[in-house]
Amino acid sequence: SLSVDNKKFWATVESSEHSFEVPIYAETLDEALELAEWQYVPAGFEVTRVRPCVAP
């Protein structure tokens, strides 16, 4: 099958004044980091952490 098993990760994104967490959907932690950097670094943010979303 061609289905992709995307998992939810939380990326911590920082600017000079703010820090916030955004959801990233990817297959692996490395891919989540790449996606977060691709989305947020060009906008002037720094991705400081990516972690798996742990269900309660």
Score class of each variant (00 low, 15 high):
residue 47 V to Q: 01
residue 51 R to T: 07
residue 50 V to G: 02
residue 40 Y to W: 15
residue 49 R to L: 12
residue 48 T to V: 12
residue 40 Y to L: 03
residue 17 E to D: 11
residue 19 S to G: 04
residue 45 F to A: 04
residue 34 E to Q: 14
residue 31 E to H: 11
residue 42 P to I: 08
residue 54 V to I: 12
residue 30 D to P: 05
residue 20 F to S: 02
residue 18 H to M: 14
residue 6 N to P: 12
residue 30 D to S: 10
residue 25 Y to I: 06
residue 2 L to N: 10
residue 22 V to M: 04
residue 20 F to D: 01
residue 43 A to Q: 15
residue 24 I to V: 07
residue 31 E to D: 07
residue 43 A to L: 15
residue 31 E to R: 13
residue 24 I to K: 01
residue 53 C to T: 06
residue 43 A to E: 13
residue 23 P to C: 15
residue 39 Q to D: 05
residue 30 D to A: 13
residue 11 A to H: 01
residue 53 C to K: 03
residue 49 R to H: 14
residue 56 P to S: 11
residue 30 D to H: 11
residue 22 V to Y: 04
residue 30 D to K: 13
residue 40 Y to E: 04
residue 44 G to M: 00
residue 45 F to I: 02
residue 8 K to H: 11
residue 38 W to G: 14
residue 7 K to P: 09
residue 25 Y to N: 03
residue 24 I to A: 01
residue 49 R to P: 02
residue 28 T to P: 00
residue 56 P to E: 11
residue 34 E to P: 01
residue 25 Y to A: 03
residue 11 A to F: 06
residue 33 L to T: 08
residue 52 P to Y: 09
residue 12 T to I: 05
residue 18 H to D: 07
residue 56 P to C: 08
residue 35 L to V: 06
residue 43 A to Y: 13
residue 5 D to F: 10
residue 4 V to S: 10
residue 30 D to G: 10
residue 41 V to Q: 09
residue 9 F to V: 00
residue 13 V to P: 00
residue 34 E to D: 07
residue 51 R to Y: 10
residue 3 S to L: 12
residue 36 A to T: 03
residue 2 L to A: 13
residue 31 E to S: 06
residue 7 K to Q: 07
residue 37 E to Y: 13
residue 2 L to V: 12
residue 15 S to G: 08
residue 1 S to K: 12
residue 54 V to A: 09
residue 50 V to L: 06
residue 53 C to I: 05
residue 10 W to P: 01
residue 38 W to N: 15
residue 53 C to P: 04
residue 27 E to K: 15
residue 51 R to H: 06
residue 38 W to Q: 15
residue 48 T to I: 12
residue 51 R to M: 07
residue 53 C to N: 09
residue 13 V to Q: 00
residue 38 W to L: 15
residue 9 F to L: 01
residue 10 W to C: 15
residue 38 W to I: 14
residue 16 S to R: 12
residue 17 E to C: 09
residue 23 P to W: 08
residue 46 E to F: 07
residue 28 T to W: 03
residue 40 Y to N: 04
residue 56 P to I: 09
residue 19 S to A: 09
residue 11 A to Y: 02
residue 46 E to H: 09
residue 14 E to I: 14
residue 31 E to F: 06
residue 36 A to F: 04
residue 1 S to E: 12
residue 16 S to N: 11
residue 10 W to K: 03
residue 27 E to M: 14
residue 24 I to Y: 03
residue 13 V to F: 04
residue 41 V to F: 06
residue 21 E to T: 07
residue 38 W to R: 15
residue 27 E to W: 07
residue 45 F to Q: 02
residue 13 V to N: 01
residue 13 V to R: 00
residue 11 A to V: 14
residue 46 E to Q: 09
residue 53 C to V: 08
residue 24 I to W: 01
residue 25 Y to H: 05
residue 31 E to G: 06
residue 55 A to D: 13
residue 21 E to Y: 06
residue 29 L to A: 09
residue 40 Y to I: 04
residue 50 V to R: 00
residue 25 Y to S: 04
residue 55 A to L: 11
residue 40 Y to V: 05
residue 19 S to N: 05
residue 54 V to M: 11
residue 46 E to S: 05
residue 30 D to M: 12
residue 22 V to K: 02
residue 41 V to L: 10
residue 56 P to T: 10
residue 21 E to F: 05
residue 28 T to Y: 03
residue 28 T to H: 05
residue 21 E to Q: 07
residue 52 P to V: 10
residue 22 V to L: 04
residue 46 E to M: 08
residue 13 V to I: 15
residue 23 P to S: 06
residue 27 E to L: 13
residue 8 K to V: 13
residue 53 C to A: 14
residue 30 D to Y: 10
residue 42 P to M: 07
residue 49 R to S: 15
residue 13 V to K: 00
residue 37 E to G: 04
residue 45 F to L: 05
residue 49 R to Y: 08
residue 45 F to K: 03
residue 48 T to L: 05
residue 22 V to R: 02
residue 48 T to A: 04
residue 17 E to H: 14
residue 36 A to Q: 02
residue 47 V to G: 01
residue 38 W to S: 15
residue 52 P to I: 12
residue 53 C to W: 05
residue 15 S to N: 14
residue 5 D to W: 08
residue 37 E to V: 09
residue 5 D to Q: 14
residue 54 V to R: 09
residue 33 L to G: 03
residue 12 T to F: 06
residue 1 S to P: 10
residue 38 W to M: 15
residue 18 H to N: 08
residue 31 E to P: 01
residue 23 P to G: 06
residue 56 P to Y: 08
residue 10 W to Q: 02
residue 43 A to P: 06
residue 55 A to M: 12
residue 32 A to W: 02
residue 55 A to Q: 10
residue 27 E to T: 14
residue 38 W to C: 09
residue 26 A to W: 02
residue 22 V to D: 02
residue 25 Y to W: 14
residue 10 W to V: 07
residue 46 E to A: 07
residue 15 S to A: 06
residue 35 L to N: 04
residue 52 P to S: 08
residue 15 S to Q: 05
residue 48 T to G: 03
residue 52 P to N: 05
residue 23 P to F: 10
residue 27 E to D: 10
residue 14 E to N: 08
residue 16 S to G: 14
residue 9 F to P: 00
residue 41 V to P: 06
residue 17 E to W: 14
residue 10 W to A: 03
residue 29 L to F: 06
residue 49 R to G: 14
